[in-house]
Write a protein that binds this DNA or RNA. Structure first.
Lengths: 347, 347
DNA sequence: GATTATTGTGTTACGCGTAACATGGATCTG
DNA sequence: CAGATCCATGTTACGCGTAACACAATAATC
């Protein structure tokens, strides 16, 4: 009987008092452990216990505390995702893929926008490790030394998915930017284009853009053509930059007959600009794009592009992470989800 | 001397061992409390302590455990955001606004995609409350009864930002979908259009779309016009649906002279479709859009639309939340960030 | 029917930090 | 110089759960 009276709680913020597992236990007349089991491992308790506990939980509106659970069990249900730009709709598909798998398995997704910089990525990684995420998805495939070390120490699985890097931190689920750019360049050459320009995002600190340029250059080499600096541009993201780039190229290098926009929505901006000016595509200049944006099919003419399995990349990345977290898989994965050239009318 | 030997740790997952504050304390020859203070409240410790602790932290690569901190202090640094569709680029700006403010203040953002359903939103809310988020941003302004009750019990600040609802759960930072749709409809009427069609997303479970329809109908009423069911459509999101809608309207109701696309990228799809078919815009039919997508400026002709302060909504939502969390503000906020009609060539 | 497994529940000891209070010395105060 | 005040640090007691083990009651085994 002389049960030591409940220790008073450390402190509580003002009015509202969230109920604890202990409150459920008391009300149901069982131990907290039984409540814990009834909620998280129902097979371990008898049916009547399960029902009684559930009833009390519903009655008092108990919301389990994941923080405490994670701390105690040393397992969190958080996944971290870091993308260079949340604004960029290209990532939306991948995010959705990750999000679907995560929430379908009881995991929650934290998203950080690192901007283009590696240092900001490191900060985001630090923050996520502090939250003790169970796994990380990184879009970048290059990182600061510090970031690499921290991730190594943390011992959590990581999937990179911006490029099929040959030197992943851990696992990689992606496609080859190099091969894709190379394939498109060769494709354009096969279509008969002689002067193929290449426009990408700014390549500094952007390994995808660099890989694409490598692929373009490799294709030129295979074709026995010399790269021409005047045909290689980099531009900030956005429609306007694409519009500007096509104007610039057509005017400054009149013999250009095809432009390969290797990133962002540049190609769309270019296509719309051509249309506005009444330039025939591909008559005046052919256009090709890199990303499988829905809108590419709807502009006039529809744009030749590369279809990338972005949703699938998200899905498989998350699955890979969860497999590793659950211990179902222990090997690093290097998964090439390929790409596909979609031939439409613009080139 | 007879210090009771370190209790062995409960359990550790295999190889990697994350260091604890205790390890830092031992190595620095101070108490854990001093370490805690040196890291979180530097003014409370002497300069030499601060430096010594920092040095040890760097040396052993200690990563503070936010889970433990949050649990112990009863304060988390997590914000939850629930949007109907992560895929939809409209939300990207708002997400960025929230994300910028959050990470600038040491908060982390968890994002859930609820889909169009209220029930899924409730699930996401539950999950976030389990993580003990410090605040919530909801795009929806209608919720299940259960969700409302849970949020009430949790006692955390909430900002809704999809519509300037007059019956917010707590605070609201948004614009009036009703007023915006009404204003655009009146604007189109002033431009001389007589038969103005209205196309929105599916209105069931989408209060924004319903509000916009209300605004459209209110404007018609003010104009002394009778709504015509044949001129009111709902469509799924996407370019194709917009393209289909414009064709459908022009063919089934030949006298239509303007179409107000009140949602998603429908208007863009419609504009591109008109262009493909060589229909003059606004000659054959005028087009107007609801959202301030960058691309609207680039299609031909540029689309008349409504500019919404989406980034600002995100930013102010997050600020409002943080003010409430920090106790800097205790009052509910109802902030109307307005909208602006952008007159371009399509109408 | 005694012995061994199985099942259901409770007990104890943490997980990793922070709040609140305690302590000892330096500084101020009149 | 006694007493009040401050400052830097330590001690204790939790926050809210789970892991691991203990234990009693039931079921399976021969």
């Amino acid at each position: 009987m002389a049960k030591p009276s409940e220790p008073k709680r450390k402190k509580r913020n003002g009015g509202t008092t969230t109920s604890r597992m202990r409150d459920v236990a008391r009300k149901a007349g069982v131990s907290v452990m039984t409540v814990s089991r009834a909620l998280n491992d129902p097979d371990k308790v008898s049916k009547e216990m399960r029902l009684k506990v559930r009833a009390v939980v519903d009655e008092i509106g108990y919301v389990p505390n994941r923080l405490a659970r994670s701390l105690s069990s040393n397992r969190s249900n958080l996944l971290g995702l870091i993308v260079p730009s949340i604004r960029n709709s290209l990532f939306a598909e991948t995010i959705k893929g990750i999000s679907d798998v995560a929430s379908g398995n009881g995991y929650r997704l934290m998203i950080a926008d690192s901007g283009p910089g590696l240092h900001e990525e490191e900060e985001a990684i630090t923050a996520f490790l502090q939250q003790r995420v169970a796994g990380l998805v990184l879009h970048n495939t290059s990182h600061t030394a510090n970031a690499i070390e921290m991730i190594g120490k943390a011992g959590i699985p990581v999937v990179e998915n911006g490029n099929l890097t040959s030197t992943p931190l851990d696992s990689v689920v992606s496609y080859s930017n190099y091969e894709a750019a190379r394939a498109m360049t060769l494709h354009l050459a096969r279509m008969g284009y002689k002067q193929i320009a290449f426009v990408s995002l700014v390549r500094r600190e952007n390994d995808r853009a660099r890989e694409r340029l490598r692929g373009y250059l490799a294709a030129l080499k295979e074709l026995g053509r010399k790269p021409d600096d005047a045909l290689i541009l980099e531009r900030p993201p956005g429609f306007s930059a694409g519009a500007e780039a096509v104007m610039h190229l057509v005017e400054s290098v009149p013999q250009v007959d095809a432009i390969f926009f290797a990133g962002d929505v540049l190609a769309v901006g270019a296509a719309l600009e051509c249309q506005r000016r009444g330039w025939k595509v591909p008559g005046r200049v052919a256009l090709a794009s890199f990303d499988d944006l829905d809108i590419l099919r709807h502009v006039n003419p529809p744009l030749t592009t590369i279809r990338l399995p972005r949703y699938e990349i998200g899905r498989r990345s998350a699955e890979c992470l969860l497999d590793r977290i659950a211990g179902r898989a222990t090997e690093r994965v290097s998964l090439d989800l390929k790409f596909e050239i979609i031939q439409r009318e613009s080139a």
